[in-house]
């Protein structure tokens, strides 16, 4: 049994406390370009939080701050009450990020991609690693692909392998960067189902950055909408659907207006 506040390992009965993420007054500039402006939000332990927003609104940059790949210009990010920029945080809290393009190592087979984390961090014997890798592949229905190389896989399979690789880390915090981009609608739905299932079965705190409205409104506990580097809204999907804010409605239900096309009014 999994208690409400614990993350369960996919490979054993071990349980670890689920983690929360606190973002406090986070701002990020790249030179003169302001990407994030004073973002404050809390992702509760064990929830699926989906971050949406137009392209270039800073969603992926925010994700990189949570995993400690970027340094804030101002403010801070706390993962399980530990500073995300502290390298020790990554050793104390198991965080996995599924990158937009998968970021699989092209020179390694699927098996070795999954085995890399436990092998390099000496977390298990070779037999133990094999057991974990095969279990992760089985969870994602990829049993027959262990010896394939990333270049031999379809886009959807690459995403599933990337998720399986993240799963081998037994994460307490799982992050997905555009997990359904470049996929057909059926495969997008499959990935959404995988994300929701992993969260339900293992109680992993999940943050998803996505443009995918169907994913956000169907699997999220809460949705945040980032516009121009600022949080325009945070609400459960039902509330968001009912929002009267014209910007939110325009983002969630964009109308194709051929008489007055948007691109004519875009800022250069």
């Amino acid at each position: 049994m999994t208690s409400d506040s614990s993350t369960r390992s996919p490979f054993s009965e071990a349980q670890t406390p689920a983690v929360s993420v606190n973002i406090e007054g986070l701002s990020k500039n790249f030179g003169d370009l302001v990407v994030l402006r004073d973002i404050t939000l809390k992702v509760e332990s064990g929830e699926i939080f989906v971050l949406m927003g137009p392209s270039g609104s800073g969603k992926s940059v925010l994700l990189k701050h949570i995993v400690g790949l970027e340094q804030p210009t101002a403010g801070r990010v706390l993962v399980d009450n530990r500073d995300a920029t502290d390298p020790a945080t990554r050793e104390q809290v198991r965080m996995a990020l599924v990158f937009q393009a998968g970021a699989l190592f092209n020179s390694l087979s699927v098996y070795d991609n999954l085995a890399l984390y436990p092998r390099e961090n000496r977390l298990a014997s070779e037999d133990g690693i094999q057991e974990k890798v095969m279990r992760a592949l089985q969870i994602l229905s990829l049993e027959g692909k262990a010896q394939k190389f990333p270049s031999e896989l379809s886009g959807g399979m690459k995403k599933r392998v990337a998720i399986a690789r993240a799963l081998v880390m037994e994460p307490q915090l799982m992050m997905y960067d555009e997990p359904t981009s470049e996929l057909d609608p059926i495969m997008s739905a499959t990935i959404s189902e995988i994300i929701a299932t992993l969260k339900d079965e293992y109680h992993v705190t999940t943050i998803v950055v996505s443009h995918d409205r169907d994913l956000a409104l169907n699997i999220a506990d809460r949705v945040g909408i980032l516009m121009g580097g600022k949080l325009a809204a945070i609400a459960p999907p039902a509330e968001l659907r009912a929002s009267t804010d014209p910007r939110i409605q325009d983002f969630l239900n964009p109308r194709i207006d051929l008489k007055n096309p948007r691109f004519k009014h875009l800022e250069t």
Binding site: L69, A101, Y117
Partner: peptide, 20 residues
């Protein structure tokens, strides 16, 4: 590897690129 985020992936896995 850097452009295609493989280096970032290594860092998130606690595997320093300088080591391997």
């Amino acid at each position: 590897m850097k452009v295609y985020q493989e280096i970032d992936a290594l860092e998130t896995m606690n595997i320093p690129p300088s080591r391997i």
